[in-house]
Design a protein around this nucleic acid. Structure first.
Length: 436
RNA sequence: UCCUCAGUAGCUCAAUGGUAGAGCAUUCGGCUGUUAACCGAAGGGUUGUAGGUUCGAGUCCUACCUGAGGAGCCA
């Protein structure tokens, strides 16, 4: 009878059984008459034990000559053992070598140290490493939690287009696409304007997908292609937006702590920092933030946007995300609702993650008044024609509404405690990095 | 676009202007409980590119290329 195929993650349920596990050779330690191949299968890593005296000679020879990342199917009996890294190991009885990596051209990523450039050039292989595997596991959990949160709170997923005409947010940072006849198209940098349309159809909506920024930004928190989740709610004010943002973050962090302890441990993440993420989040006005920053030596003046160092200073002050509201309208997008009592500030909020991670969420209340929106489009020198459909939303049953966008990569970088967002997506796209 | 730093073996890094080196990886040998295993040996180099200074350049100078960190920019 052919042994049952299992995954390494299921090994604990098969103690005492002879099973087969298909995977790749992660590493091999050997002495003369015993070998310890480490098998990786995507669900985990298992130490196997091959004893020369217990195996036919060709089988033992095949195992001791295996090269790193060769694809193999090991067959043997599962046994609990404290000496094994995962707690269980396999006494190998047979091996099927699917492909042996030739030693003339060995697997380039060794268990030793490598530089950033080398690893990024080998990103397609680097993904097999434990650390990268753990990060992408957390990313998957974040995405699933985000969707679960919105799905179970009355939001409908209505995805928005990637190709967009003209400028939605301003013209400086868009990727141009030459394809549509007589007209240039651009890659979306936000789904928000479309969300406002679908919110008037469904009440509460969200979109989730890739967005594109053509900025010449070269920092640890920027990608040219990144994923963003954007909820939008009709009949909602700034306070409702803050409420949802806070609830969603607490939910996502809780889910990652619940499901991805092993990954966080491998990443050596201080989970006590994440366990502190509970509602309510501290809130601060832009006015107070500027005063605070000035007291810390920042050169920021009222009216300016925060620099990276400013965000870091602010977010290091608290053990949970900080919500900053009331930025000057002049530094925010044209559709931001001004505060009726202080028209120079917008009814917007940025959520700054703690530990210096900075902005993970930006959002606010949108202008719902037709005349005001029309005036703002003019002030920002935007083409009115292109926004006729958007103005329609104010002609036909306009209501106060708002929402926010959360960058998935920044969120994952924060939860994993990473230096750079480039490790939070399988194939990062950056200013100087298009391959692999 | 600007500032700073770096580029030497497949990888990570040494080398006072004077013979180009180590660890890992690879190959060979040894080892029955290894944990980035260990021990011994071997092979492996147009020092990013192009010029220049010098008796002599990996090292100093100029330009360029590539990358990293940062700034600006940033829904």
């Amino acid at each position: 009878m052919k042994p049952k195929r299992i995954t390494i993650s299921a090994a604990s349920q098969h103690v005492g059984e002879t099973v087969s596990i298909p995977g790749w050779l992660y590493n091999l330690r050997k002495s003369g008459k015993i070998a310890f191949p480490l098998l990786r299968d995507g669900t985990g890593i298992m130490q196997c034990v091959a004893v020369k005296s217990a195996l036919p000679e060709p089988v033992f020879d095949a195992i001791k000559d295996l090269t790193q990342e060769s694809s193999v199917i090991f067959t043997g009996k599962i046994r609990a053992d404290e000496r094994a890294p995962g707690g269980y190991e396999m006494d190998v009885e047979n091996v099927e070598v699917v492909q042996r990596v030739p030693e003339a051209d060995p697997y380039p990523i060794t268990p030793k140290e490598h530089g950033v450039d080398f690893l990024m050039d080998h990103r397609h292989l680097w993904l097999r490493s434990q650390r990268q595997h753990a990060i992408l596991g957390v990313r998957h959990e974040v995405i699933r939690a985000v969707r679960d949160y919105f799905d179970s709170n009355g939001f409908t997923l209505v995805d928005t287009p990637i190709f967009t005409p003209a400028a939605c947010e301003g013209t400086t940072t868009l990727f141009e696409v030459n394809y549509f006849e007589d007209e240039k198209a651009y890659l979306a940098q936000s789904g928000q304007l479309y969300n406002e349309a679908t919110a008037a159809a469904f009440g509460k909506v969200y979109c989730f997908g890739p967005t594109f920024r053509a900025e010449k930004s070269k920092t640890r928190r920027h990608l040219t292609e990144f994923w963003m989740v954007e909820p939008e709610m009709a009949y909602a004010a700034l306070e409702d937006v803050k409420q949802v943002a806070e609830e969603m973050i607490v939910f996502v962090v809780g889910r990652v702590l619940e499901k991805r302890r092993a990954e966080l441990k491998l990443l050596e993440r201080d989970v006590s920092k994440l366990e502190a993420i509970q509602a309510p989040f501290p809130r601060m006005s832009y006015d107070d933030a500027v005063k605070f920053l000035q007291s810390k030596g920042s050169e920021i003046q009222w009216g300016g946007d925060f620099g990276g160092a400013d965000e870091t200073l602010l977010s290091q002050e608290h053990d949970r995300p900080l919500m900053v509201d009331g930025y000057p309208s002049s530094v925010k997008a044209f559709y931001m609702q001004p505060n009726p009592e202080r028209p120079e500030v917008a009814m917007c909020v940025d959520v700054l993650a703690p530990e210096g991670y900075g902005e993970v969420i930006g959002g606010g209340q949108r202008i719902h008044d037709y005349d005001l929106l029309l005036r703002r489009i003019g002030e920002h020198h935007l083409p009115k024609d292109a926004f006729e459909w958007y103005l329609d939303l104010r002609r036909f049953g306009t209501v106060p509404h708002g929402g926010f966008g959360m960058g998935i990569e920044r969120c994952v970088a924060w939860l994993c405690g990473l230096e750079h967002v480039r490790e939070t997506i399988a194939f990062p796209r950056m200013l100087y990095r298009l391959r692999p």
